[in-house]
Design a binder for these strands. Structure first.
Lengths: 246, 246
DNA sequence: CGTCTATTTGAGCCCCGTCAAAGGCGGTGG
DNA sequence: CCACCGCCTTTGACGGGGCTCAAATAGACG
C-alpha cells in the first residue's frame, strides 16, 4: 500500500535501476485480487500464470479427501509462487488467500523474456527457487522430528526472518495475520494444541503475540528453542552487485 | 548391474539415440563408489558435482544437533540428485548411501552443455526437477496429516511406482533394501512403531515384505489405504517423442 | 559358528488429539 | 453508540496413537 514492494530476490541481489524497472513493469501486468479465504488456484487446474504477490498473505496447501489439510508454504508480498509452475499441466496443490491479496498474474513467456534480458535477475530468481525448495525440506524435517513446541518456534523464526529480509519486520516485531488454525495446518497439530503451545512460548518469554502482530524479544533464544539453523535460507552468499553501482 | 540403466527422465520422454548416447557419456564421467551407510556429501560442504545415481540406494536427509534425523527423499538408479545444487555454496542437507552405491559425479558445466545441445533433454530434466519438488510437498503432507498406517502405505506406494517407472518393478514386486529404521526416519515414526505398523499392513493383506523385497498384491487397495493420489508424480503428460521416431 | 545388525515383542506412559463449551474481539448495522 | 453476530481464542476433561525402555529372536555374513 504505502511503501514500495521489496522483492524476495532483492534479499540476495542489489538490482540496478533498469532491473528494478523491469520488475516494476511485470508487477503491473494483469493484477488480480482474491478475497479472504478464497483460492487463487486449485489442485487439478491448469496453471496459466506465474504469480507475483503484491499485497496480503497466501498459502500453498494440499488437502486429503476427508478434509485434513496441510499448509506447505506461506507467501508474503514480494514472493513469487513458482517460476516453472506452468511446465506441468495440472496443479498438484492449491494456493489460497489468507487475507485479501493482490497478485500480478504474469504470462510465463513475459517472465522468460525478462530472464533472458537480465542474467542477474535470472540468477536471483533461480536462487529464490532453490531456497523455496530448501524450505520445503526444512518443513519436512520440522513435521517429522521436532516437538510441537520446537515446531511452532521454528515456524515463527522462519516467518520473522523472511519478513525481515523483505523489509517487513522492525523492532523485533512483524505482522502475523495467521490464525491458530493456519498455524495448526502448517505444523501438523490441532488448533487446540497450537493454542496451548503458544501459551507456553509466551509464558517462557520467547514470543508476544496479539492482534495479528508477533514480537520476538530475543530472536537468538527463540532460535535455540526451535533448534533453528538458518543455513537453509542461504542468506549469506549474495550475488555480486551490478557493474555500475547504484 | 546386468541391465541397462533407465533414467528417471526416460519415464517422461522417449529419447532419440543421440540423446541416449549423450547421457551414456555423462554417466561414464568420474564414477565414484560409496560404501554402505557412508555419506556422499554432507551438510555444510560445498557441492561441486551433479550426481547421477547408477547403482544402489541413497537418501537425502537432515539431522538435528541431538541426533534426530529425517530422511527427505530416496534415490534409486536413474535418479539425479539435484540439477542446480551447485548454485548454492553450502549444502543445507546431506546425502547418504543406504546400500553400496555407484554414482557419476558430473561437472555442472558438462551438464549445461548437454542441456544446451539437447532441448528435449532439458525439458525432461526440468520435469524431473519439478516432480522431485512435488514429492517433497507430498512428504510434507504425509508427515503432517497422515496416520502411521497411511504414511507407511503411502511411502511404499510411492517407492513402488517410482521403481516401476524406471523398469525396476515386475510382477507386483520390487527390491526394497531399506531397514525399518530407514522407513522410520522417512515417516517421522520410531522403528518400533514402524515394525508394528508393517505387521498390520501385512496382516491386512496389503503388502508382503521380506528379505529386502516388497510385494504389493493389489496396488489399488494399498493406494486407497494410503489416500494415495498420484497426480503429484505427473506421470501423464509425456513429452512428445523425437521428430525421427526411434 | 560366532558376531553384528535388523526385526520383533512387551509393558508402561505421555504428548497430543477429540469433543464440547465458554469467552473475547472486531466488524457491522441499526 | 450500542447490540448483535461471526470468527477466533481459550479452557477442561478424557482418550488414544505412538514413544520409551528393555530384552529376546532372527537373519546376514564371513
Amino acid at each position: 500500500m504505502g511503501g514500495v514492494l521489496k522483492l524476495r530476490s532483492e534479499a540476495f541481489t542489489r538490482f540496478a535501476e533498469e532491473e528494478t524497472a523491469a520488475f516494476e513493469r511485470l508487477s503491473r501486468t494483469n493484477v488480480q485480487e482474491v478475497e479472504v479465504r478464497r483460492d487463487l488456484i486449485r489442485e487439478g487446474e491448469n496453471p496459466r500464470w506465474v504469480y507475483l504477490f503484491l499485497e496480503g498473505w497466501a498459502c500453498r496447501y494440499k488437502a486429503l479427501p476427508d478434509g485434513r489439510r496441510q499448509n506447505l508454504a506461506f507467501f508474503v508480498p514480494g514472493d513469487i509462487c513458482d517460476l516453472n509452475v506452468c511446465v506441468l499441466t495440472a496443479m498438484d496443490h492449491s494456493i489460497g488467500a489468507i487475507t485479501r491479496i493482490r497478485v500480478a498474474a504474469i504470462e510465463p513467456e513475459l517472465f522468460q523474456e525478462v530472464i533472458a534480458a537480465h542474467p542477474r535477475i535470472a540468477r536471483a530468481l533461480q536462487r529464490e527457487e532453490l531456497v523455496k525448495i530448501a524450505m520445503q525440506r526444512e518443513w519436512t524435517l520440522n513435521l517429522g522430528q521436532r516437538t510441537a513446541y520446537e515446531r511452532i518456534a521454528h515456524l515463527l523464526c522462519e516467518i520473522f526472518l523472511r519478513l525481515d529480509a523483505v523489509g517487513r519486520a522492525a523492532d523485533h516485531s512483524c505482522e502475523l495475520p495467521l490464525t491458530q488454525v493456519d498455524l495448526a495446518d502448517a505444523t501438523g497439530l490441532t488448533s487446540v494444541h497450537v493454542n496451548r503451545t503458544l501459551q507456553e512460548l509466551r509464558s517462557d518469554g520467547l514470543i508476544e503475540l496479539k492482534s495479528r502482530r508477533l514480537t520476538i524479544p530475543d530472536l537468538e533464544k527463540l532460535k535455540s528453542a526451535a533448534l533453528f539453523n538458518d543455513n537453509y535460507l542461504h542468506l549469506n552468499d549474495e550475488i555480486a552487485p551490478p557493474a555500475k553501482g547504484d
